[in-house]
Computed example of a mutant assay.
Amino acid sequence: MNITATHINLYHVCRRELWLHANGIRMEHTSDVVAEGKLIGELSYPERSERYTEIEIDGVKIDFYDARNRVVHEVKKSDSVENAHIAQVKYYLYKLRQHGVDGATGIVEYPKLRQRELVELREEDVEAIKDWEIDISGIIYGDICPPVIHSKICRRCSYYDFCYVDEDTY
């Protein structure tokens, strides 16, 4: 199984969700939060699909890539800047570099915040990404699902009912 940008994102958010997702247990189709995120991505920049290219490298799909300026655009519905989003875009840049596209940068866009975060790939990021890939492989091929993380983010997660089915309250 190729490691995808979704795996990278989930690795930084919840290793349990990473394991479940990678092992075919998908709950996103039941989530209003996921549906809202897709809608924000589609409606915030309607002209984007005409101007930018969707590319796939080693199973990693970049929805909006400006090939002329070598810029990856990633839209997030979140109302906060998150490390997982930055990590995901760094992974895109890493995959581009592996395929001969040097000097690409990324922009994570938060329409709800009216904010943008510039993302660059540094050499120390490359080493970290290699470590992430090793850790992710260990998690997704592991026989045991990681434990529930009991975080405030759990309440909005599409896996909430799955993870807390035996819990009285959280």
Rank of each mutant, 00 (worst) to 15 (best):
I3H: 12
E56F: 13
S151V: 04
V72E: 03
S78H: 15
K61L: 15
V126L: 06
H29D: 04
Y94H: 02
D166Q: 12
E54Y: 01
D102P: 00
L18V: 08
D125Q: 03
V148D: 15
E120V: 10
R16M: 12
I40L: 15
V75I: 12
R97P: 01
E17F: 00
I8N: 04
E56V: 09
A87E: 06
P146D: 06
R51L: 11
E28V: 01
I149A: 13
V148Y: 15
I140K: 10
N23A: 05
I25G: 05
E117W: 08
K130V: 09
D66V: 04
E36V: 08
P111V: 07
G41R: 08
V101L: 13
Y164G: 02
H21Y: 14
Y160W: 14
A128Y: 14
H85D: 15
T4E: 05
K152I: 11
I149C: 12
V71W: 09
Y160L: 12
I55E: 10
K112L: 15
M27Y: 05
Q115D: 02
G100D: 05
E120R: 14
C154D: 07
Y170F: 14
S80N: 06
L39K: 15
N83V: 12
I57D: 11
A128H: 11
K77Y: 06
K112Q: 14
E42G: 04
H99Y: 02
E50Q: 14
Q98R: 05
L93V: 01
I57K: 09
S31W: 09
M1F: 00
I86Q: 05
Q88H: 06
V165F: 11
D168H: 01
V75W: 09
G138L: 07
F162K: 11
D79M: 15
S49W: 13
D102E: 08
N9L: 13
S151F: 04
Y160K: 10
S151N: 03
G103W: 12
N9E: 11
D32W: 13
Q115E: 12
M27C: 06
L20N: 09
G100I: 07
V81L: 07
V165P: 00
V108G: 06
E167V: 08
L18I: 11
H7F: 12
G59K: 08
A87V: 01
V89G: 02
L20M: 12
E42R: 07
I139L: 06
G142V: 03
Y141K: 10
G59L: 10
W19L: 10
R116Y: 02
V101H: 02
L18P: 00
I144G: 00
E36T: 02
E127L: 10
R155W: 10
P147F: 05
S31E: 10
N69Y: 07
V89D: 04
K38F: 11
D66P: 00
V71Q: 04
T169C: 02
E82W: 02
I136S: 00
P111W: 10
H21A: 09
E127C: 01
I149F: 06
D58G: 02
V71L: 11
D32P: 02
E123I: 08
